[in-house]
Computed example of a mutant assay.
Amino acid sequence: MTDQHTIDAPKDGTKEARLVDGLTGKGQTLKQLSALLTWQPHTVRAAMTRLRKRGYVIDRVAKTEKSAARFKLRGDKT
């Protein structure tokens, strides 16, 4: 990929845009994302896969003794 690669951002107000917002910053757990979007966990995972195919880089932050694994957006380009 080149540095001039741009990501097709989701339309404002859509659940996909809310997913991107939920993945920004420190990220959220799958359970939190599921509640945020009122989707089943498998639907959230599928939506994250679609975002990855569009060029988003989503990291999984490993779980600790005190918290579940979180997913967070790394940046705007692959």
Rank of each mutant, 00 (worst) to 15 (best):
A9L: 11
D21H: 14
Y56A: 10
L33R: 01
T14E: 07
G22C: 07
A62N: 00
Q4K: 01
E65M: 00
A47Y: 15
W39E: 12
D3C: 04
V20N: 04
V44E: 08
S34F: 00
R18W: 14
S67A: 05
S67P: 03
Q40M: 15
L33A: 03
D3N: 02
R50N: 12
R18S: 14
A47M: 15
K15I: 09
R60K: 08
K66S: 00
E65T: 00
G22D: 02
K31G: 02
Q28H: 12
K66V: 04
V61I: 12
W39P: 08
F71S: 03
L30F: 05
R52M: 11
L36E: 13
L36K: 11
Q32R: 02
K15Y: 15
R60Q: 13
A68L: 14
R18E: 15
K63M: 08
M48Q: 13
Q32V: 00
R45K: 10
A69N: 00
E65A: 05
V61W: 02
L73D: 04
V57G: 01
A69V: 12
A69Y: 03
L51M: 08
K53C: 07
L73G: 07
G55T: 01
L33Q: 00
L23C: 08
A62D: 09
T6Q: 09
M48T: 13
V61S: 07
G27R: 01
D8K: 08
M48A: 10
T24S: 09
D21K: 11
G55F: 05
S34Q: 04
G27A: 08
G22K: 07
L33E: 00
A35L: 07
W39S: 08
R50P: 03
Y56G: 09
R60W: 07
K53H: 11
V44Y: 03
D59A: 15
R52D: 03
D3W: 01
K31F: 02
T29W: 09
T64G: 10
L73M: 09
D21L: 10
A62I: 08
Q40P: 13
F71A: 11
L73E: 06
A46L: 14
A62K: 09
K15A: 14
Q40G: 14
G22P: 01
K11G: 01
G25M: 11
G25Y: 10
G13M: 02
T29E: 07
T14P: 02
A17M: 13
H5N: 08
L19A: 14
H5A: 06
S67V: 00
A17S: 12
K53S: 05
M48L: 12
K15N: 12
G27P: 03
A35K: 13
E16Q: 15
L30W: 10
K66E: 03
M48F: 10
D12V: 06
K63A: 06
K53E: 10
S67T: 01
K31E: 09
T38C: 14
P10T: 05
L51V: 08
L51Q: 06
V20K: 08
K63R: 09
A62T: 10
P10Y: 03
G22Y: 06
T29G: 14
T6R: 05
K15C: 11
H42N: 10
A47H: 13
D21I: 15
A46G: 13
T6L: 12
A68K: 13
K26V: 15
